[in-house]
Simulated assay, not measured.
Amino acid sequence: MSVVGGEMGARTGARASGATSAAGRLIALGRAELTLLGRSKLMIYSGVFAPLLITYGMKAYFSEQLDPEKTGLSIGALMLPAALGMALLMAVYNNLVGVYVTRREDLVLKRLRTGELADWEILAGGALPAVLITLAQCVLYVAGGSLVLGVGMPKAPHLVALGIVIGVVVMAGLAALTAGITKSAEAAQLTPTPLFMVSLVGSGVFFPLAMLPDRLAQVLELLPLSPVMGLLQAGWTGGAAPGETVKQLVIGLVWSGIAVFAGQRWFRWEPRR
């Protein structure tokens, strides 16, 4: 076991042994993971700064290629949901795949399973720092972005909140699933790419699905991140038609259930060397 893996296992085991509740065990594990996360400059950059930088770099694209009259959204109302979507993909999904695979290959997860932690607690505790960082990012993006871009706060903040919560659950579950098929920490830099690229192009991050032909849009609406982006974009416009919002919620909740079930069912706890 690596030095980092042994250190995390020892710290978490000591803290969790004194925790009498699931919440206490989750906090102990999350605190240990946050310590390790703070030592990884790459993960800090990719999870905290990259989503904002990439979204800002897309400003020229949004301004020149997307017609607000066709999309029904202003440039700011396009960029802010895109920033939130990028944060979910990079800070939660991409980062967690690397975290789960690295901890598994270092035998940290195997050691944690010998204690009182349940499997779901290990996965949730490992995801806790990434989730909290993402939620903080989303708050900063909404508040700061609304001021800088002059679009104001969301007209339907409850839809934005629902979109973020569903997005966190879906991305965390899919991260665990992807980690299960990833053989090494090096491979973890590549295996998230297919879902990442499909979500960017087909889930409404780069452009609203309303710009596409109806039949194609109906298919792409079924992608994991599509209902999340639909809710985020509707949050700035004041909400879509009630039927459309209900459909997005249903699809999002279905994906949440699928992601959580599949992530736990097919996660690999043993090293795949």
Rank of each mutant, 00 (worst) to 15 (best):
V4A: 11
G5P: 05
G6Y: 06
E7C: 05
G9I: 02
G13E: 02
A14F: 11
A14D: 11
S17D: 13
G18T: 08
S21Y: 13
A23M: 14
G24D: 13
L26G: 03
L26A: 05
I27K: 04
G30M: 09
G30F: 11
R31F: 07
L34W: 15
G38K: 12
G38R: 13
G38V: 15
L42R: 03
M43C: 00
M43Q: 08
I44E: 00
I44W: 07
I44D: 00
Y45Q: 08
S46A: 12
G47S: 10
P51D: 08
P51C: 05
L52G: 02
L53T: 06
G57V: 14
Q65W: 14
L73R: 01
L78F: 05
M79S: 04
P81F: 08
P81C: 10
P81M: 10
A82E: 07
A83H: 02
G85E: 02
A87Y: 01
A87I: 14
L89R: 01
M90G: 01
A91M: 13
N95L: 10
V97P: 02
T102R: 06
R104Y: 13
V108R: 01
R111C: 02
R111H: 06
L112E: 00
L112Y: 06
R113Q: 13
A118K: 12
D119W: 13
I122K: 00
L123T: 06
G126Y: 03
L128T: 06
P129I: 06
A130H: 13
T134W: 00
L135F: 13
A136T: 14
C138T: 08
C138E: 03
L140H: 04
Y141L: 11
G144I: 12
L149P: 04
L149I: 15
G150N: 10
V151C: 11
H158F: 11
H158A: 12
H158Y: 14
A161H: 09
L162V: 13
I164S: 00
I164E: 00
G167R: 00
V168R: 01
V168C: 09
V169Y: 02
A172L: 08
L177E: 01
L177N: 00
T178K: 06
A185V: 12
E186T: 11
E186I: 12
E186K: 15
Q189C: 01
Q189N: 12
L190A: 08
P192R: 10
T193V: 15
L195F: 15
S199Y: 06
S199A: 11
S199G: 12
G202F: 13
F207M: 15
P208Y: 01
M211C: 07
M211S: 05
P213T: 00
P213V: 01
P213L: 03
D214M: 10
L220M: 09
L220C: 05
L220T: 05
L222M: 14
V228K: 01
L231C: 07
L232F: 10
L232C: 06
L232I: 10
L232T: 04
G239M: 14
P242D: 06
G243F: 07
V246K: 04
K247E: 12
L253K: 03
G263L: 06
R265F: 12
R265K: 14
R268W: 04
R268T: 11
W269Q: 04
P271E: 07
R272K: 12
R272V: 07
